[in-house]
Design a protein around this nucleic acid. Structure first.
Lengths: 210, 210
DNA sequence: CCGCATCCGGGGCGATACTG
DNA sequence: CAGTATCGCCCCGGATGCGG
């Protein structure tokens, strides 16, 4: 919250989003869309609840976030990014991009993991290699939630959540699933490692690394 | 220094560059090139000297920065970014870009200001409108140092420092100088505000806002 | 001078407990 | 479910000292 007191665009940005946890809160909101407090906390393992409350307050005051009391029957508070908050997208893209080398080795023991965190690298580094094939839906399922990857027309979208009707489901640890999709890990090897794959594996084969 | 412990590219990036002052240290190194400790501190008003030493150590260990003991007669330590450190450029670009609205209003009273901080917005938001004219050199001079802006062939480069031979020199507060260059502030108004301009003002006229 | 190390308040942060 | 309350700790900020 303390300002650098410098007349510099970078310092000004960091005055707003430079505090600990702040950009990770933005990450959750950007990945999940409008979210409940509890869901945000679930996606931010390690954060103290008072800090989450404080960051949400500060972000709201800065105009990056809006709080809406959803009407019944939902009867809960939803937090969502404003357009100004959504403009942080290029910042997060650049940071994610720069951080990719650090996740190349796979998760360290004891490290927290949520499958939807991989949605970002998925959109940045995977592509649809068969734009002329009909669209397909891939679901990556793990203990830490699910991610839906939709491919079609040369486009690839990833979002947290479940698929109504997936062509193929990959069940196992998210990092292995990601390596399977990127072609770094052959399917039969992944299966031997305990990754379960059900459905049409052609949907996997059409995805490759950029 | 404390890790988020999350297997996520964004969290990993912030583990390295998310601490207070860290990205501002990178800013100085990126703008100035290889720098002495004292010069870095001069460009980071408000930082405690022990914190600067600590950040430099951490950045060195993370492989973003190299320390070289310059040979005599310089006999001083120079800090410079490694290639990995230089890869943070897109991150800083995005943050600078996002922070521009916060500097639109001009500096607040008591706020620190170094003219070379404006080199970044200059390169991002000014352009050479007369690519066919011969190259020109503009120097922006103020109490807080000087910036050289070189235009020619449709390109525009800004860097801290003095020009050997400038076509035009703008002397005054950096924010006004920037507004003059961007065409937001007419030259005669700026002169009435105490901005001194010597030389060939055509070099100023050929610059405009993107 | 240059490049730090040390010391010392104050506050942001982390963890747990508790509540409308 | 969505926070507030509390407490200890460590990081940060500011000042000073100090060897090369």
């Amino acid at each position: 919250v303390r300002s650098y007191g410098q007349y510099c665009a970078l310092a000004k940005s960091l005055d707003v989003v430079g505090d600990r946890w702040t950009l990770l809160v933005v990450r959750e909101l950007m990945l999940r869309g409008p979210s409940r407090y509890t869901d945000l906390r679930e996606g931010l393992p390690g954060i103290a609840t008072n800090l989450l409350a404080d960051r949400l307050r500060v972000l709201e005051r800065a105009g990056l976030l809006a709080r809406e009391d959803a009407p019944p029957p939902i009867a809960t508070t939803l937090f969502s990014l404003t357009s100004r908050g959504a403009e942080l997208r290029p910042v997060l893209d650049a940071l994610v991009n720069w951080g990719v080398p650090y996740i190349a080795e796979g998760p360290a023991p004891g490290e927290e993991l949520r499958s939807h965190w991989l949605a970002w690298p998925a959109e940045q580094f995977l592509r649809d290699d068969e734009p002329d094939s009909p669209p397909a839906t891939i679901e990556v399922r793990s203990d830490s939630g699910s991610v839906v990857i939709e491919v079609g027309g040369g486009e690839l979208r990833a979002r947290p959540g479940r698929a109504a009707l997936a062509d193929v489901v990959i069940e196992g640890d998210p990092h292995s699933a990601f390596r399977v999709l990127s072609g770094q890990l052959p399917l039969h090897v992944a299966r031997a490692m305990g990754v379960h794959v059900h459905g049409d594996t052609r949907a996997i084969a059409r995805v490759s690394r950029i």
